[in-house]
Write a protein that binds this DNA or RNA. Structure first.
Lengths: 345, 345
DNA sequence: CTGTTAGCGCATTCAC
DNA sequence: GTGAATGCGCTAACAG
């Protein structure tokens, strides 16, 4: 474990350290003979370059900092995977910072002050490490403008927004529009919706898509078919019961996340309503368990991998001083499973 | 965004760069007056130290490399979270490498050659970045001896093993022993088990625990109560049916993962067997969905966070040249939910 | 094609 | 209590 450096190699191979550097980086042509000799010594001495020194000199770290609000929240790992996918192909490295928000502030992520210090620290550390840029991965889509200051370094937000910076999001409105269209094409005319909390951006956007589809297909807009949930299983259970107790219940429900959809499934079972024979259900998020439920539920898959990949690509453009490309917005895709069928009537 | 360095500060504050370094690191006493002046200039110029340069000089990066076989596999994020937990408290940084094994080689993780190149690359990169040590997070407990060579740098494996290095694992045998004891204490005497693939270490260990408990409690050892599954939902479904068709079916089943337990639940439903009235079930892993099933299933929670935390702690000892501590093995804990009840008879 | 040399930004010895 | 000087390991002019 002796630390062999470039100069050791140079000595052993009877060349200058510059030459070694050249063969190492291919920066310049080196006579084949010389090159082989150097390479052999490198092999023999088991030399490993020191990126730290290289970075200091070249002022390039080839490293980007990823700030994840919480790696244990379902959307984050897939996004990281997408980031890695792109990074691998472009010889970039990742320094990961995990804010551990879920554990530290629970559901109070709306209260920015509660975790500003963590975020600011993370940025400081990353800046000190001379990252070329940063990606910030939220655990809930919301505006985090002003949370951090990257001192001019490029940053891309994903799964959340910031007003003066680029952010990569999926198309919520389109997704729920597509879901309703799918139900319509299956023959459904009374389509209910169970939303998430209405102060959340995705809820609004998804509702817009629902409303737009209802309008375009000239379906009756009935307020009693619209239920406001809170993303939790119990609200799905409760609201579905309300829906099923209507004098004219819906034949299909668009539920804005898979967790509430579990509640919907339970309500249906309790009421003796068959899914999908009597009631069709579409969930949102493609949570892993949605495939384990009975029936397996049809759900809108979030393009998480693509969001990570795309964030990285856009960031790289910023780092290279190019324009943020007129990126197309990642689209959700409907996973057809067993919770949707044509209505009986 | 001018790059202000230590020498800028020195000039503005009329001191030498050495002095600035002293106040920055508290390496030596500096007259209060001078110190304040320096601090003020640092503030004004918004100076951020350059860790790269610092590391080059001090030969310490305070960074450890984490090699995750795949961040999208359920056990990994929690382990990373534990690592971060410890790292945060000790001012350590994490460079994350994601091998993306699941995506790249699917279930062929037994075939080491299929991904050796990725692993070796990861280690090279980390070594070049001068990490102080590494943690390797597996996606399935197995022996990965010889996969990588860290050139003498300390490494700790978790959720997998390597023969000549430290590895942090949870106590599989104890866990399943505890599960059986729990069932016994609830009054069960005919306790079946559905294992995972028997070439997997956890299956063996968990079976040992089952066997030990059966023996100690002097329960009849009946081979027909032992079913070998493959970790997949379908095997849980199929094997549970077999169990329920026995002339004298079990009153409880220990299922070695939650995914197969979903199959068990389905089989019971198809057979009209009530859970937990007619059949008690204990799963393994505490997968998120185990709380969404109907009934919510009682399961063995893996101490993932602790494994990450503990890996980091042990690694730090190695880095500091201390002995790997006689670490106690992280224990699983049984999460009591709704899938276990006393047997009817 | 190859060698010499000057730093990158900072910590640290050694003088004062 | 403070400063001047040295070098960490490497890259990239600049000279041959």
């Amino acid at each position: 474990m002796e630390k062999v450096g470039i100069k050791e190699i140079a000595a052993q191979a009877n060349v200058s350290i510059a030459t070694v550097s050249y063969v190492l980086n291919g920066t310049r042509n080196v006579r084949l003979n010389t090159k082989e000799r150097v390479l052999r010594v490198i092999e023999e001495l088991n030399y490993k370059p020191n990126d730290i020194a290289k970075s200091l000199k070249s002022k390039k770290t080839n490293t980007i900092g990823v700030i994840a609000e919480d790696v244990t929240v379902f959307n984050v790992p897939e996004i990281i995977d997408g980031i890695n996918d792109y990074a691998d192909r472009h010889d970039l490295h990742i320094v990961l910072t995990n804010l551990r928000l879920h554990r530290r502030v629970g559901h109070h992520y709306a209260d920015v002050e509660a975790y500003r210090k963590y975020a600011v620290n993370a940025v400081s550390d990353l800046l000190a490490k001379q990252v070329e840029g940063m990606i910030y991965i939220g655990i809930h889509p919301r505006d985090v403008t002003g949370l951090i200051d990257t001192q001019g370094k490029p940053i891309v937000y994903t799964y959340c927004y910031a007003q003066n910076d680029l952010s990569i999001q999926y198309n919520d409105e389109q997704a729920s529009y597509d879901a309703v269209r799918y139900l319509f094409n299956k023959g459904h005319r009374r389509i209910a919706v169970i939303t998430g909390l209405m102060d959340s951006i995705p809820s609004r956007l998804r509702f817009n898509g629902y409303y737009k589809a209802i309008t375009e297909y000239e379906l009756p807009f009935e307020p009693q078919l619209i239920k406001v949930g809170d993303w939790g299983l119990d609200s799905g259970l409760r609201l579905t019961k309300e829906l099923l107790e209507l004098s004219e219940p819906p034949t299909a429900i668009l539920v804005m996340n898979d967790v509430m959809a579990v509640g919907t499934l339970r309500a249906a079972r309790e009421k003796g309503v068959g899914v999908p024979e009597d009631l069709s259900i579409i969930g949102f998020d493609n949570r892993e368990f949605s495939d384990y439920l009975n029936p397996r539920i049809t759900t809108m898959a979030l393009p998480l991998h693509e969001m990570g990949y795309s964030s990285m690509r856009s960031l790289l453009r910023l780092v290279n001083g190019e324009d943020a490309d007129p990126e197309q917005v990642p689209q959700c895709v409907l996973l057809e499973r067993d919770s949707v069928a044509p209505p009986k009537r």
